[in-house]
Design a protein around this nucleic acid. Structure first.
Length: 386
DNA sequence: AAAACGGGGCT
DNA sequence: AGCCCAGTTTT
């Protein structure tokens, strides 16, 4: 990261620790690492390519599973050039069983980028690493710090858990702002003499001591700095908002206009979303076909609203066909738990229908604007005006 | 900034 | 069978 951006981040989230306390943190962490670091194949090399391969593999798989894959991969494709020119069949067979096959394809694209854009050498800056396909902020930080000594944090799930517990960070770790806060703290904590070891030490502690379910990490070299341990709150961290899954739904909304220029509208009931707000009548549909017919457009409406009869629509004219091609706008409306894709179907009646129905009534555009409307309905009405 | 993606592993 | 994970890419 550029030093001015880094400085700004630190000013935004200052740690306010004394130099002595920061020094002590580094000494505890690195002293522990010197004694307890795990002996892993990719820690016996300083070849940036090998370290890169290991980081990509470790993104998706546990250490013990990765080991044999790693050994075979670097033996078979020992250089970036070999990776860049390998056949797809060879790549896939080397990766078979690891999953996330797009990542090995991305890695080959990146190897080709290195050959063409970087003269066959891995770029030695964060920006350069980030320019490679498949390398995001975590991998750039890991490879950059371990292989090139760049003073950059490598924030993965382990590190987020550790940071959220050390500082009792009570924000959702899936938020970008929370990761920025952690990056700011880590820029202040990271040892500029040994950034790669600093990052790997944190990851080892996360993997072996400050695990997801160990709330009393008595062996942790960071115990003195561990707020959640001292307050007995470790089990509360990290805070991860459980994401409700969004159910996609397709709907038609019918803008049915009579000769007076009025539209049929209805107020959503309490068993519906957008309760109390007024809308064009809407109907659920499975999917919208490419070559949908006029009949198919109106069928869901008749199904869902018994009071709208076929005789009423006998004179209906669908005004959105250009030749046979339907040209209907769609509006996306996102709820916390639903995503509606609403296709606006415009219907012009030639007869002068005036009587109101049980739950539907006629309203001019001007009258509608006096009613409580959802943003969805406003967007639909916007489509008609233009 | 938020959503989509992805396939092995777990319940 | 369906949910979950942990990072990157895409929008």
């Amino acid at each position: 990261m550029k030093s001015n951006a880094k400085q700004q981040l630190i000013e935004q989230y200052p740690l306010n620790w004394s130099e002595a306390k920061i020094q002590s943190f580094r000494e505890q962490l690195l002293g522990w690492y010197d004694q307890h670091q795990r002996d892993l194949p990719w820690r016996r090399t300083d070849n940036p390519y090998y370290i890169w391969v290991s980081e990509i593999m470790l993104q998706q798989t546990q250490v013990d599973t990765v080991k044999p894959y790693y050994e075979r991969f670097i033996e078979t494709l020992p250089t970036i050039e070999a990776l860049a020119t390998a056949s797809e069949a060879e790549l896939l067979s080397l990766w078979q069983g690891l999953g996330y096959y797009s990542r090995v394809r991305n890695m080959q694209v990146a190897a080709q980028q290195v050959m063409s854009d970087y003269d066959g050498q891995m770029p030695k800056t964060i920006e350069g690493l980030l320019s490679l396909k498949g390398i995001g902020p975590y991998t750039a930080g890991a490879v950059g710090s371990i292989a090139f000594g760049l003073v950059e944090p490598a924030i993965d799930g382990n590190v987020m858990r550790i940071m959220s517990r050390l500082f009792e960070i009570d924000q959702d770790i899936t938020l970008t702002s929370t990761r920025k806060l952690m990056a700011a703290y880590l820029y202040q904590l990271i040892d500029p003499e040994r950034p790669g070891d600093f990052n790997q030490a944190l990851m080892d502690i996360g993997a072996t001591i400050m695990t997801p379910t160990n709330y009393e990490p008595l062996e942790s070299p960071l115990l003195d700095f561990d707020q959640s341990y001292h307050n007995g709150t470790a089990h509360l961290f990290p805070i991860k908002a459980k994401k409700v899954k969004v159910i996609p739904q397709m709907k038609f909304a019918y803008a049915i206009r009579n000769v007076e220029g009025e539209y049929l509208v209805r107020q959503h009931t309490e068993d519906e979303l957008l309760h109390g707000l007024w809308h064009f009548p809407m109907a659920d549909v499975e999917m919208v076909m490419e070559g949908v017919t006029q009949h198919e457009l109106l069928e869901p409406l008749l199904d869902q609203y018994p009071e709208i009869t076929e005789s009423l629509l006998r004179q209906a004219q669908l005004i959105q066909f250009n030749g046979d091609q339907l040209q209907a706008p769609t509006i996306i409306h996102q709820f916390s738990h639903r995503k509606w894709t609403v296709t606006l179907v415009e219907v012009a009646l030639n007869n002068s229908a005036i009587s109101n129905f049980e739950s539907l009534k006629w309203a001019s555009m001007a009258q509608m604007t006096e009613l409580p409307l959802s943003t969805l309905q406003q967007k639909l009405m916007q489509q008609i005006k233009s």
